Amino acid sequence: MAGHITLRREVKAIVIDHPGDESVLHVGDVDAPLLVEGTIRIRVHATALNRADLLQREGHYPPPPGASPILGMECAGEVIEVADGVSGWKRGDRAMALLPGGGYAEEVVADAGSSMHVPDVLTFEEAGAMPEVFLTSYLNVFELARAKRGEMLLIHGGGSGVGTAATTLGRIAGLRIVVTAGSTEKCVRCVQHGADLAINYKTEDFVERARGADIILDHIGARYLPRDLQA
């Protein structure tokens, strides 16, 4: 044949036509994403909700250049196609992937290097919520900070996705978990989730309550840095 013909194909996805609240979300037909070099195609069984999805839905968080405008920063499902030259993956494999977008669709094309095999002990629903917050927490607390059993981990935003994931991993690793949160209700839920101490940063000084922290996981930003160093 003189050339390769790519047939247009549609899949279902959750789409938004304009920014707004949850009422703007609806199911629609979109073009199936194209398989390109270094990627795998996943039939999505489960995805997750992250704060970035909420911000994007409201029009405050545009997707990166070249990324899908469809929401969804992670997913889990079955590999149904593998690009030429990609090793370590085959049709039928169970995969979970970190995405720049596109997870709220029947199919997604994911970078093979940002995809992981789903362990047999995890369901698709569990795996679909792993890549974004759990890997962020694991990378920072254990790969970069080299956390050791018995150390104190201070987590800002303890009620967030990253915060709850870090609490879970920290408890498993034998760390003492101290978190900050913005309300009494959130503090109670953080303790129920496994934190040893939850500090309402609106009414208490976390520096005094968390003094002696060995590791601080801070996704709040620069304004907290001087006080983090004091703790």
Rank of each mutant, 00 (worst) to 15 (best):
T164M: 14
R146D: 13
L154C: 09
L139D: 14
G161E: 10
S137D: 05
G161S: 11
G159Y: 03
L135P: 01
S160L: 09
F142K: 07
F142V: 10
I155E: 06
T164A: 05
V133I: 14
T167S: 03
L154F: 08
E151F: 12
K148H: 14
L144Y: 11
G150C: 11
E143K: 13
A145T: 01
G159F: 02
G150A: 12
S137M: 04
S160A: 11
G161I: 12
V162H: 07
V162T: 13
F142Y: 09
G158T: 11
L153M: 04
F142S: 08
G163I: 04
A165H: 03
A147S: 06
R146H: 15
G157V: 01
F142I: 09
G163C: 08
T167P: 02
F134Y: 15
F142N: 07
S160R: 08
N140Y: 11
V141M: 07
G159I: 02
V141E: 11
A165G: 06
V133L: 01
L154A: 07
R146Q: 14
L139M: 11
G158H: 07
G150D: 12
E143L: 14
L153P: 03
A145R: 03
M152E: 10
G161C: 12
A165Y: 05
E151R: 13
G163R: 02
G158Y: 07
S137V: 03
N140R: 09
G163F: 01
E143A: 12
Y138S: 00
E143V: 15
G150Y: 14
L144P: 00
F134R: 06
F134H: 14
A166N: 02
E132Y: 04
S160W: 06
T167E: 00
L139Q: 14
L139G: 02
E143N: 12
S137W: 03
L144C: 06
S137N: 04
G158E: 08
G161P: 11
G163K: 03
M152G: 00
R149A: 15
F142D: 03
L144I: 15
G158I: 07
V133C: 10
T136S: 13
G157T: 00
G157K: 00
L135T: 14
A147L: 04
K148T: 15
E143M: 13
T136H: 02
E151H: 13
S137T: 05
L144W: 09
T164D: 01
F142R: 10
A166K: 00
S160K: 10
E132H: 02
V133Q: 03
R149E: 15
E151W: 13
A166R: 02
V162N: 05
T136C: 08
V162W: 10
L154W: 05
A145N: 01
T164Q: 13
V141S: 09
G157A: 11
Y138A: 06
L139A: 13
G161T: 14
L153W: 01
G150Q: 14
R146M: 02
L135V: 11
G159A: 15
A166H: 03
Y138M: 02
L154G: 07
V162R: 05
S160C: 10
M152P: 00
T164N: 00
E151T: 13
N140E: 10
G159C: 04
I155P: 10
I155S: 10
G158K: 05
T167A: 03
F142C: 08
Y138Q: 05
H156Q: 12
I155L: 10
F142H: 08
H156Y: 07
L135N: 07
A166T: 04
A166C: 05
G157N: 02
A165D: 05
L135I: 13
